[in-house]
Amino acid sequence: MNVTEYIESGILESYVVGAVSEQERREVQCLSSIYPEIQQELDQLALSLENYALLHSVEPPADLKSRIMAELTFEQSTEPIIRPMPVDFTTDRPTFKASWIVAASVGLLMFVLSFFLLARLRSNQDSLAKLQNANSSLQKEVTQLKDQQQLLALLRQPGSRTVALHGNEKAPNGDMLVFWNPKTREVAVEVHSLPALQPDQQYQLWSLVGGKPVDAGVFDATTANQQIQKLRRQIDRADAFAVTVEKRGGSPTPTLTTLLAMANVDA
């Protein structure tokens, strides 16, 4: 993401004065928590707005309240005041033709105005749809960036290991990576290519310790290649890692007939 272009887009100014949508507000808050440059720009804009308001503030005159109260005088009257409505009988009444022309002109004007407003509405809807699509793409980029940051944090820790798993004859094009840190016991997978499964199935990672399988967590073969998935299980020991196909949610023991890949940690 280009932080400079985002700051220069004008959305931060709109956010400070409250002229953004709820989705845009969440977007700015999310990005400002990730990028210190955006948070710094928001602080400067807020300070500038506060200084501008203080600079142009005007103290009302001291006698303003008394002058207003003096103008608010009410006279009570027990009898209603009735005034005749002036009627000028000397003026000729408008003819039917003139009235029809006026009505037709007003109708035409309303039609043109309605057409103009409808065109503006469609244009605004198109612009809103484009902004929503752009915002959705930006959110996906932020999610991917967070995933990459988690991976980098895992890989930068001392002792982190990367194990490449390749599919057997049941998944000849299978390809994925396992990231594991014995000290933090964190495990993550990066799927490059795995066969699609039924909705009630999931892939399950196993840690082999002394030949015995230990559940390392379940994951999906996502359509977005190279999407990192951090597993919820923690593994402190592993001689090898293996992948099987299990029912959704995982299984306490591996189904050996669905074994797709296996690799030693030190291979």
Rank of each mutant, 00 (worst) to 15 (best):
V102A: 11
L117V: 06
T95Q: 13
P94F: 14
W100Y: 10
V106E: 02
G107H: 02
A103W: 11
A103M: 10
K97C: 04
A104F: 01
T91C: 11
R120K: 13
R93I: 04
W100F: 07
L117C: 10
A103R: 12
M110T: 00
L109C: 09
V106M: 01
W100A: 11
S105T: 06
L108M: 09
V112E: 10
T91V: 15
L108F: 07
F96L: 15
V106Y: 02
R93Y: 12
F96S: 13
R93K: 08
L109V: 03
F111L: 14
L108C: 06
S99P: 00
S114K: 04
V112P: 06
T90G: 08
L118G: 02
G107R: 05
V102M: 12
T95H: 11
V112D: 04
G107P: 02
F115L: 06
A104W: 01
M110G: 01
F115R: 08
L109Y: 02
S114N: 03
F96A: 13
I101L: 11
V102N: 07
A119S: 10
T91P: 00
R93F: 14
P94L: 14
V112W: 13
L108N: 05
S105C: 04
R120A: 11
M110Y: 05
F111S: 11
S99I: 14
S99M: 15
F111G: 04
G107A: 12
S105I: 00
L118M: 07
A104M: 03
F116P: 01
W100C: 06
V106I: 02
R120S: 10
A98N: 09
A104G: 04
S105M: 05
V112I: 08
L108E: 00
F96D: 14
G107C: 08
D92H: 11
T90N: 14
I101Y: 02
V106F: 03
D92W: 08
P94H: 10
R120M: 06
V102L: 12
A98F: 09
P94N: 08
A119Q: 07
D92K: 14
V102I: 09
S114C: 03
I101F: 02
M110D: 00
W100K: 14
W100L: 13
S99A: 10
T90S: 15
A119V: 01
F111W: 06
W100T: 09
V106P: 00
T91L: 15
F89W: 03
F111I: 01
